[in-house]
Design a protein around this nucleic acid. Structure first.
Length: 473
RNA sequence: GGCGCUAUCGUCUAACGGUUAGGACGGAGCCCUCUCAAGGCUUAAAUAGGGGUUCGAUUCCCCUUAGCGCUACCA
């Protein structure tokens, strides 16, 4: 039985890279009928905020992918400490009474990495116990075996065989001087306790995995399988950060930009993974079936955005593809929600509503378009754009539209074909090009210079409103 | 500095050691057309550099270069 976890730390909103990690975990778990564990890694009290936790939920909820178990590390501190003290007891760890390095920059890197403080590492048990009992603060460090040094090896499901000498691993901290566990300890302790079988996470942890294996082994635990994911970067190859790249790194931005959760998931999946059969647009079902760790890349993927164009064009394209191909019954509630969020109460019944969506969806890229470019299809208080105005300002156009309204009023059929016949006849009688009248009609009816076939628009908007709008210009 | 990872069109990616190096986004052009999309067709665009191994390297090995990650009492 597969058990995988997504373990964000609440130090910001849900990051686009974290979202992809969650999605890959979810896909893997669902494909193998396993258990998805959501674990909040909040052991760093100084940096964690409740606001950030909420924003992570917000992002996760929008994606709409569920989890089966939920845990918070801050509520599991005893589990972590128990393991740390067990390691201390058995000599796999020791107390370091040296004060924390005040300034990291001071640490001389010239002669290689810092490995340990030999004085502290060499402290006798009696001495260590005595100083601890006297209340001296200390950090618990893992005693990495170096004499003889040996090679730690594991096979990453994505990156393949990995190995590292213990001589290159520093005595990392397990417990801070305030008694809180570090990430390494808490993560491994919980992975053990929660019986996690697959650790699927960002590649930034690839080299940390050696430390984790040390902990797993010292704790006498089985080893989960590891799969590391390539990182998502900015176009210049740098790490995505809010400070430098702004809202493009937050999942909620895409939601607010009118993205469909599925399209966004689809887009994220294609970053660092490929079904290898040229498929691009895929449903959740297809993604779940196709997903495998073999298809995951080893090199980082760039999220393609710029200041002028903050959304990756491919994401936008994928969104428009889903927008036009998903079942209209599924899309309709999302559109309604978007309209309502923008203070619009769409008129008409559900059939009318869905017909309007069908009429315009192929030329929209996001849900937001329905409330802007598509406003006239759902409400009467739309604004006529300048370019549309230009089409209405053609000499004689308004009079023709008024006449067209009269003829439509007298048309018992009011179909695509009958409206077209009426319009073309009128144009011919008055010696104007049909196109001019067609464009003017669309402008009057929708406030837009462009849009669907004008005759489809007539039928979509409905006779009463068509007549009213044509007479109003 | 040390250790680790990575390297195919601008971007996302495909290619049992043998392909005219394929697809998609974006770009350009054409068709369709009442506008704009959509759709169809065409087109420009890549194996980082150097050595090996091999009859033959995008593919395997080494070096260089570049990028990224870790090297915290952050995760």
């Amino acid at each position: 039985m597969i058990r995988a976890r997504f373990a964000p730390s609440p130090t910001g909103y849900l990051h686009i890279g974290s979202a992809r990690t969650f999605i890959f975990n979810w896909l893997y778990v669902r494909k193998h009928q396993g258990t998805m564990v959501l674990r909040i890694d909040d052991t760093d009290a100084d940096r964690n905020t409740e606001a950030s936790l909420n924003s992570i939920y917000e992002g996760l909820n929008w994606l709409g992918l569920s989890w089966d178990e939920f845990h918070r590390q801050s509520e599991r501190l005893e589990v972590h400490r128990k393991i740390a003290y067990n390691l201390l007891e058995r000599g796999f760890a020791y107390r370091d009474f040296a004060p924390a390095a005040a300034d990291l920059e001071d640490r001389p890197h010239a002669e290689g990495p810092w490995l340990c403080n030999p004085e502290m590492r060499g402290l006798s048990k009696e001495e260590s116990d005595r100083r601890a009992a006297a209340g001296e603060p200390f950090v618990v460090r893992f005693r990495v075996q170096r004499e003889p040094a040996y090679e730690i090896a594991f096979a990453d499901e994505v990156y393949g065989p990995q190995s590292k000498l213990t001589a290159d691993i520093e005595d990392f901290a397990l417990l801070r001087s305030n008694g809180m566990p570090t990430y390494h300890l808490a993560s491994c302790a919980d992975d053990i306790e929660l019986k996690i079988t697959h650790v699927i996470r960002g590649q930034d942890h690839l080299s940390n995995t050696f430390k984790h294996i040390l902990i797993f082994q010292a704790a006498g635990s089985y080893l989960p399988r590891f799969a590391h994911l390539p990182l998502l970067t900015a176009p210049d190859g740098s790490k995505l950060s809010k400070r430098r790249h702004g809202p493009v790194v937050s999942v909620t931005t895409y939601r607010d930009q009118g993205f469909l959760a599925l399209a966004y998931i689809n887009f994220l999946c294609l970053l660092g993974w490929s079904p290898k059969d040229n498929r691009e647009q895929m449903t959740l079902f297809e993604l779940t079936n196709a997903f495998n760790l073999e298809g995951v890349h080893r090199s980082n993927a760039v999220v393609n955005f710029s200041e002028a164009d903050p959304i990756d064009p491919k994401a936008l394209w994928l969104n428009s593809q889903h927008l036009r191909s998903m079942p209209v019954e599924t899309l309709a509630p999302l559109v309604r929600r978007t309209l309502e969020d923008h203070g619009l109460a769409p008129y008409g019944d559900e059939a009318f509503f869905q017909h309007a969506i069908e009429t315009i969806r192929t030329r929209f890229a996001t849900l937001l378009d329905f409330s802007t470019k598509g406003r006239a299809y759902f409400a009467d208080d739309f604004h006529i754009e300048q370019q549309a105005l230009d089409k209405l300002n053609v000499p004689g156009a308004r009079e023709l539209l008024h006449e067209l309204a009269n003829r439509i009023e007298g048309d018992p059929q009011f179909t695509d074909a009958s409206v077209e016949a009426n319009l073309r006849k009128l144009a011919e009688e008055r010696g104007v090009k049909a196109g001019v009248l067609i464009n003017a009609s669309r402008a009057a009816l929708t406030g837009q210079p462009v849009g669907p076939s004008a005759f489809a628009v007539f039928v979509c908007i409905g006779r009463e409103r068509v007549i009213t709008r044509l007479r109003q210009v």
